[in-house]
Design a protein around this nucleic acid. Structure first.
Lengths: 200, 200
DNA sequence: GTATTAAATTTACAATGTAAAGATAATTGG
DNA sequence: CCAATTATCTTTACATTGTAAATTTAATAC
């Protein structure tokens, strides 16, 4: 529990993850630098090596953390939402979009990589946890038996795709005609889109 | 029209763009290197500077080219599809997904950046051209008057979001439960999802 | 309290992006 | 047709980066 800058940081791993997110947010994925993260955390440039095998490992850990945070946010939103299944599902969908719009760089990191599944299982696991929030919400609307047919999976796929696509297009400034507006004005449109799928 | 390796390449700009795509595809966005592109094109590592101000400019030009190719593919698909408006729209939507799945790194480059709009207007322009294929297709289904109300824009937003989200989730290995199958097996599901939105 | 281990630093090096200066080919104007 | 100019590419140079190795310092274990 050291306060001053000392030889042993105490919690450098987490500090580096926080620093990496800052670095990512204000320098962008291209200009991102490991040495920059170390500087932000107040340690030498080689210190990260003791906690992350290389830059990629740090970024993947950050992505994994992003999924964990997204899962938490969705669950928190569902707790404050009305308990009926449709409202719960809408809460998750809107929360998903909200997260993407508010964390564009992190969101992109989380979904930008390819073929990293095997290598970083924590990332895989946390991603699946997020996914299961959605799946469970659909199950509560459609009934558990839905997933014995393929229709339940189609619902999940369509809902997830819709929310995800909107989130990325919005956060990437590809739909300025709608995303120039504050989020609370977008919310009814998002809800409407999601409901169109739920209500077939 | 020189064949042998000579001092003046003749068409280095295009050769570099082709090299950059190769480099991106088989090294990935992290390990991507400008010097690697130069080597692939068979020129010195400083040659690219005469055609692109920096690495970012090369990547943005590649993204712009990606949008141009996507637009072409969509229009080509629409020419072979049945002429009725719904089939035309479906062709564009399915083609969009197909492009994303077959060009995951390029697709990600095209949609991964942020705040580059002002700087690289060709990218902006080509992106809008792709977008207009979708908009026009929706207009032909709904009637031109649709865009005087907000409902037409909602259709566009929902369709685009759905296609885009599916494409990215699929190409990022986040939906293996469906994307492990060959594309022709996915096609009817994709069409079904798009139709669900078109048919309200 | 010493030995061992963990956590950080310092040093070193190869790879990269980019700038500057030089070399070579293409083009232009007479 | 030839000199001069311009465009295109190379060579050289340098700061930044990622990562490995050796070293130092603190924490832990016996």
């Amino acid at each position: 529990m050291a306060k001053k800058a000392e030889y042993h940081h105490g919690d450098l791993r987490n500090a580096l993850l926080a620093a990496a997110e800052e670095e990512l947010v204000d320098k962008g994925p291209e200009k991102f630098s490991l040495r920059g993260c170390a500087k932000r955390a107040g340690v030498s440039h080689a210190a990260p090596a003791h906690h992350f095998s290389d830059t990629e490992a740090l970024l993947q850990a950050l992505a994994a953390r992003g999924f964990a945070r997204l899962t938490d946010e969705l669950q928190a939103l569902q707790k404050t939402a009305p308990p009926d299944p449709r409202a719960q599902l809408i809460a998750a969908g809107v929360g998903y979009v909200h997260f993407g719009i508010n964390n564009p760089q992190l969101f992109n990191l989380m979904f930008g990589g390819h073929a990293h599944q095997m290598k970083y299982e924590e990332l895989q696991k946390n991603g699946e946890a997020t996914f299961s929030v959605l799946v469970n919400s659909v199950a509560k609307v459609r009934g558990q038996a839905a997933f014995q047919t393929e229709e339940g999976w189609r619902d999940v796929t369509a809902l997830w795709s819709l929310a995800h696509g909107y989130a990325q297009l919005a956060s990437g400034n590809k739909m300025n005609y709608v995303t120039d507006r504050p989020f609370d004005e977008q919310r009814p449109y998002i809800e409407d889109m999601l409901l169109r799928i739920i209500d077939n």
